[in-house]
């Protein structure tokens, strides 16, 4: 390597014009290289058409008390459950301070909202203008992601310590409000953005 500093002009002390040119070109190549890399990385993110497929409408009129269906929303299964009065009261009685995850994990609420039963049910859902929804239906309905917050398996309905959802993969127990109670899953089942667009139709997304 030639020492670019040791030219007669600078005597090896002061940085020369050549140093400046070296640093500037290496810098430009570095920045340019990083910019070129970005399209190759970003192409792997969800594409525009994937992002566009993002609402699902659920008809609740056919759901009887204690019935549950699974719908697909943004490529993921979601539980839609009309809970019985007993299931609601069991979930409502638990003190939030006793829960492993005390946050509602509800896209309709602020991030800091506590995991009360009301904050988990569709009482938290938006309601379109002019639409009237029965209060009892709103507090009975629970819509959550069906992918366990541990590693994504679909929990089994009506099983586990709380007769609600039990994930067979590594043994996570969820309660009747879809909140994690025991096992390796770190968070409550997340609740998607949702709005009542009629008295019995809920739109996800």
């Amino acid at each position: 390597m030639t020492d670019v500093n040791s030219n007669p002009e600078t005597g090896g002390e002061e940085p020369s014009r050549r140093d400046f040119l070296y640093i500037a070109s290496v810098g430009a190549v570095g920045v340019g290289g990083a910019l070129t890399l970005w399209p190759f990385i970003d192409q792997m993110n969800p594409a525009a058409d994937t992002l566009a497929l993002s609402t699902t409408e659920v008809n609740l009129s056919a759901l009887e008390e204690g019935a549950e269906i699974t719908v697909m929303f943004r490529e993921r299964p979601h539980f839609v459950r009309r809970r019985t009065a007993q299931e609601i009261s069991e979930a409502a009685e638990v003190e939030v301070s006793r829960l492993p995850d005390q946050l509602a994990r509800n896209a309709n609420l602020e991030d800091s909202a506590p995991a009360t039963d009301a904050n988990r049910s569709t009482l938290s859902a938006g309601v379109d203008e002019g639409v009237e929804v029965d209060e009892a239906l709103r507090s009975a309905m629970l819509v959550t992601s069906a992918n366990c917050t541990h590693l994504g398996c679909v929990p089994t309905e009506g099983a586990g310590d709380y007769d609600a959802w039990f994930c067979p993969c590594h043994g996570s127990h969820y309660d009747t409000a879809g909140r994690i109670r025991r096992g390796p899953a770190p968070e409550n089942l997340p609740i998607p953005p949702m709005t009542f667009i009629s008295a019995t139709t809920l739109r996800l997304g």
Binding site: I41, M44, N45, P46, A47, T50, R74, E75, R76, N147, H150, L151, G152, C153, C169
Partner: peptide
């Protein structure tokens, strides 16, 4: 599902990384 979700364990970047790996929401 299980293996890609492992990356979701990373703090902050977990969700962006898994969606980047999936190219979707799942």
């Amino acid at each position: 599902m299980v293996i890609t979700n492992l990356f979701g364990a990373l703090p902050l970047i977990g969700t962006p990384i898994t969606e980047w790996l999936w190219g979707g929401f799942s």
